[in-house]
């Protein structure tokens, strides 16, 4: 029996569709109050995993425990303290957000007296108060996604399963959903979130599991994964422009492994070095006459590592 302490325990989970292995003996554990990003290219098995965890698909083999209850055997009890957003769900078009969430509240056992206040709370949380009494049929995809997030939070679950929660949202909506997730993380929710947006996982999660072709390739903290490649990408913006001579000199600086210049006043430097070395690099650039007004980690180290990993697994 798996530990009942860990909100999510996956043991050798497999799923085949007509001989095609979408999931191949996937195993991983998610610790309480952690936020795990589930990364992988399209078709890697992310959505299949979340669909099995939410009883939308049947596993071909293996087990998955949600708060200690095997969802493959007893989905009703396993899903009791779980909130989920899978793909971009649709809601009954004849109902309003308040009616829809009140319905879900009843299915979750929230009494009508408590449900009214709780529904208002989550609607406010996802910024849908203005449309709470309009029928969902005319809502945009982004608005429906907010309702989906609201229904996942309604019963204050111990575990949140989110399948690409920002998919289909406009940039503002994406940022808002990310902010909600960050807040939830601080509030103590355990979050298991699939995404193919690396920067999103880097921004929101503390651990990342990378899958490809149904297999788990690596599972580690985002910080450790980001530093595994040892080379970071620095984004440097200049007031002046860089010429060929300066470019050659920058290439020769300590720790510089490569330079890309998308414009004459912008550089991306692949750099191997700690924070002190980075400080020295900045000073060297200034000594070379480059007027640097922005010097930041481009946050693509994880991306490089991820791409290498996916490439290797092919």
């Amino acid at each position: 029996m798996a530990s009942s302490v860990e909100p999510l325990v996956i043991e050798n989970l497999s799923k085949s569709y007509n001989g095609f292995k979408a999931l191949d003996s996937l195993s991983l554990n998610v610790a309480p109050r952690s936020c795990v990003g589930f990364l992988g290219p399209n078709g890697a098995g992310k959505t299949t995993t979340i669909k099995i965890l939410t009883s939308l698909l049947r596993a071909s083999g293996g087990r998955a425990f949600l708060n200690g209850v095997d969802v493959t055997k007893d989905p009703k009890n396993a899903l009791e303290k779980v909130g989920a957003v899978v793909e971009t769900p649709e809601f009954y078009p004849e109902l309003t957000p308040v009616e829809t969430l009140s319905y879900f509240a009843r299915l979750r056992g929230i009494s009508p007296a408590n449900a009214e206040a709780r529904v208002a709370e989550v609607i406010e949380q996802v910024k849908m108060s203005e449309w709470k009494d309009r029928r969902i049929g005319k809502f945009s995809k982004g608005m429906k996604q907010r309702i989906a997030v609201a229904q996942a939070l309604l019963h204050e679950p111990e575990l949140l399963l989110l399948d690409e929660p920002t998919a289909g949202l406009d940039p503002r909506g994406m940022a808002e959903v990310r902010d909600i997730i960050k807040t939830l993380r601080l509030q103590g929710y355990t979050i298991f979130m699939s995404s193919h947006l690396l920067f999103e996982v880097q921004q929101v999660c503390d651990k990342a599991a990378i899958v490809n072709k149904g297999k788990l390739l690596i599972y580690d903290s985002v910080e450790d994964l980001s530093t595994r490649k040892h080379v970071m990408k620095l984004e440097i913006d200049l007031v002046n422009t860089i010429d060929t001579e300066t470019y050659t000199k920058v290439c020769a600086l300590d720790g510089v492994k490569g330079i890309q210049c998308p414009t004459a006043s912008k550089m991306f430097i692949d750099f191997d070095g700690d924070t002190v070395a980075r400080k020295s690099l900045l000073e060297s650039l200034q000594r070379l006459g480059l007027q640097v007004y922005s010097f930041t980690d481009a946050g693509v180290a994880l991306e490089d590592f991820y791409l290498d990993l996916i490439k290797e697994s092919k």
Binding site: T54, S55, L56, P75, K76, N77, A78, L79, E80, V82, A84, V86, E87, T88, P89, E90, F91, Y92, F104, L107, R108, A148, Q151, L161
Partner: peptide, 9 residues
């Protein structure tokens, strides 16, 4: 709509 309703207990 099953994506919203089936993940409920």
């Amino acid at each position: 709509t099953g994506y919203a309703i089936f993940p409920n207990p």
